[in-house]
Design a protein around this nucleic acid. Structure first.
Lengths: 213, 213
DNA sequence: GCAGCATTAATCAAGTTTGACTAGGTGCCT
DNA sequence: AGGCACCTAGTCAAACTTGATTAATGCTGC
């Protein structure tokens, strides 16, 4: 599962009601085009697909106010909100070693209670540790790991990634526990969307060096 | 770009000539089904696609010797070898933060010279550092990073990943420089394929805990 | 000697992703 | 007044991925 559904649901939800281009713009504002597969096609596809599945409600809307083809506005349904929360909780908990899923979840974590986020992240640490154990046990030949030759570097790489991932998560838990950020039910939330008339300070210019994807 | 083409080309190449099921088995032997999208469908698709593109040559072959439908054997063409080396070099160099690509490349790095691998990995470190710089510059508001609120955790996560990725790469360079592993042109290579009659000691049983994908 | 099950090998439909392309409108320069 | 560049909003075909399913054969117990 990629991060696209979570991103799109979260973006629409923050607006209350949004059309595709708006979502596309928000995701760009968040830098999501750099670290996730948030291409136009994927976004519009996700919107349509989720509308078909009843997670979003599609309003037919008049021609755009600012050029371009007529646009459809979407709204998150109740079922969509449930799905959103499920995806969000799952993305915070599970270790699936795709950075985009965790990144998306970090952007939305404040939609949950502080206490719940802490629990989910603790669970994440446990999941990573379990995964690490499974990998090392599964992938260690009887005659010792030297038998693997350079193939052992693959396992070494996974294990290192798991360890640093756990370490980073512990740091995040620490920061949240000591009061960082504003979570659900704690006063006026941090809003990360662009207003209709606001220009995007991070608008895509040329791509950045090192974008290997 | 996913790792599937590199994996399939590399697997076929190590056999000289292989059918889909053999490739599938090798990848499982390497644990690739755990950390890459090496599902049967993807493998067979990649084989056909690359045959169509002239990277592989497809031999029509008699019915299987051991049950099942008739099988097609593939062989890497000259063009395929070129593509393979290009993919391999690119995957060692570029930082695209998908662990599967690097994992696959690690498995095949010994097809290159020791010196070249060291150069490619040095380049990788540089690419990571450049990427890190681009990210921090691009994503730091004028009023200081505190303005980002919890969104800053996303950037923090990328940057941390980049740093540990660079650190790990430096460790690998060190190990290779001090003589670890057997590279191209250094005597009998380490072979990581299953012979026809050999059984897979890591055959898929049930899945492992923490397999979130 | 054959019913039932496992194994081998591959296909298929449904869903997703990609990146290029379309097409209308606005503003600016000359 | 013409034209060109750019922005807005979205579509599309081609490629890729996924997980289930099919199809052929061998093995095993009765």
């Amino acid at each position: 599962m990629s991060a696209i559904r979570l991103l799109v649901l979260g973006a629409v939800r923050q607006h209350g009601r949004a059309h595709g281009y708006q979502v596309r713009n928000d995701l760009e504002y968040w830098g999501a085009h750099e670290w996730s597969n948030a291409k136009p096609g994927s976004i519009y596809h996700a919107l349509k697909q989720m509308a078909k599945q009843g997670l979003l409600h599609a309003h037919e809307i008049a021609p755009s106010t600012a050029g371009g083809p007529p646009r459809t506005e979407y709204e998150v349904t109740e079922k969509g909100t449930e799905e959103y929360l499920t995806l969000l909780r799952g993305s915070l908990t599970a270790y699936d070693q795709r950075p985009d899923v965790l990144s998306a979840a970090l952007g939305f974590m404040v939609d949950l209670d502080r206490e719940e986020v802490l629990e989910l992240l603790e669970e994440r640490v446990l999941a990573i540790e379990e995964w690490r154990k499974a990998v090392t046990e599964y992938y260690t030949p009887e005659d010792g790991p030297e038998q693997l030759g350079h193939i052992g570097e693959i396992m070494n790489f996974w294990v290192t990634s798991a360890d640093t991932g756990a370490q980073w998560t512990r740091g995040l838990i620490e920061r949240i526990r000591s009061g960082a950020y504003v979570f659900s039910g704690e006063g006026n939330p941090f809003v990360g969307v662009l207003a209709d008339d606001e220009e995007n300070p991070y608008a895509t210019g040329e791509s950045h060096p090192g974008d290997a994807r």
